[in-house]
Design a protein around this nucleic acid. Structure first.
Lengths: 205, 205
DNA sequence: CAGCGTATATTCTGGATCGAGTATTAGGTA
DNA sequence: TACCTAATACTCGATCCAGAATATACGCTG
């Protein structure tokens, strides 16, 4: 599984938009926004235009025409090519079929958790739990608002996935906080003195 | 919560290493490798040196001495400063206490799932399940090998977290595949014809 | 002891990425 | 009608970062 030459998920979104019909970049951005896809694919204008450029270099999309309405800025409309369609399906299949390791910020934090005193960690994990619970509540409220008639589940599985991950995390974080508090975590007895020792060090300005 | 000036998690790892004792960059890399932290924080040499440089520019670390053993390449030893220690704790606390949105590849794939025919999606999700199950099995075997005596749980919570996420995903992916297969997903009746329609389009070379 | 792979330690380069900036028009309002 | 804000559409520049390249030393094998 060699690394894809273009790996920014935003490029997949561009291919996905053009799979439906030709568009200019700003229109793709609007389309993604309207469908709430920017919740699952990071959209920023700088990246959008540079990604479109590199897709064109690869020959996966072609610029069709540059139109202008009135004296608004000129806009370039792009269309998907045959090879672009192949790449789209191929990439999409790989994303769905093959799990890859992703690095999360929280994981990085957990890696160095032991540098903080146990009680501070418990406090932070509780704070995280609360914020996660809020977020989940909001997602539920929003989800209840959007009925199947408006947007069938088919088009919002990605947000269900994300919500599921957050719920799983919430449960886990609560449990970890409890385990630390109840001193059930192996290594916890050395932890406090370990932290104490390290905090003695002198630092230059 | 303004964006951190240096946001690469590898920088946190550098601060974390130097919190223990002064080191040169290559030594940090080895330390992280030995503790299997590169499983949760992406480590690559190019980034390591550039991150160290920018930490120095910020004044969070200082270069102490450049030594050389024999005629091996010269190496620069860095130490944490007071402000670096402050940044380390501050950053670490934020990572643990405040959940942030992260964009995963799979989510991006799910966002455009509807572009593939239902049966293809089911096949891909089953493939993913199998691979996830393998991965989980391997993590379990590895975890059983590493006893608490060797490496207390305190120092491997990050891998437990990751494993938990994968297990949750596995369960969810299986369920989604079943729902599609049993046509329980709302919108599924239009799906097939929607795909059919789009696939009719002509593409330039 | 010549040769080869691996470990040590860092630098270099070009492409990716992000946020901020620019310019125009449309629409609302006081 | 002059002003303000929001929307439209894109561009620019600075930084970030991955991967490859470089250079030396060590240890093993035949």
């Amino acid at each position: 599984m060699a690394k894809r030459k273009i790996s920014n998920p935003l490029a997949l979104a561009v291919l996905g938009c053009l799979y439906e019909r030709p568009m200019h970049p700003y229109e793709m951005a609007m389309t993604l926004r309207n469908r709430a896809k920017q919740e699952s694919i990071k959209l920023n204008y700088g990246s959008l235009y540079s990604v479109v450029e590199s897709l064109e270099r690869r020959g996966w999309i072609v610029s069709r025409e540059t139109e202008r309405e009135g004296r608004r800025p000129e806009r370039t409309v792009y269309a998907l090519t045959k090879s672009g369609e192949v790449e789209f399906f191929d990439w999409l299949s790989e994303l769905l079929g093959v799990p890859v390791k992703e690095y999360t910020q929280f994981e990085a934090g957990l890696s160095f958790m032991a540098a903080l005193p146990p009680d501070a960690v418990v406090r932070l994990l509780r704070e995280r739990s609360d914020l996660l619970a809020d977020e989940i509540k909001q997602m539920n409220e929003y989800g209840a608002m959007v009925s199947d008639a408006v947007l069938p589940r088919l088009f919002r599985v990605e947000s269900e996935y994300w919500q599921m991950l957050r719920e799983a995390e919430l449960k886990w974080v609560k449990q970890l906080a409890d385990e630390i508090e109840n001193k059930e975590l192996s290594g916890i007895d050395q932890w406090a003195e370990f932290v104490e020792q390290l905090s003695q060090q002198e630092r230059s300005e």
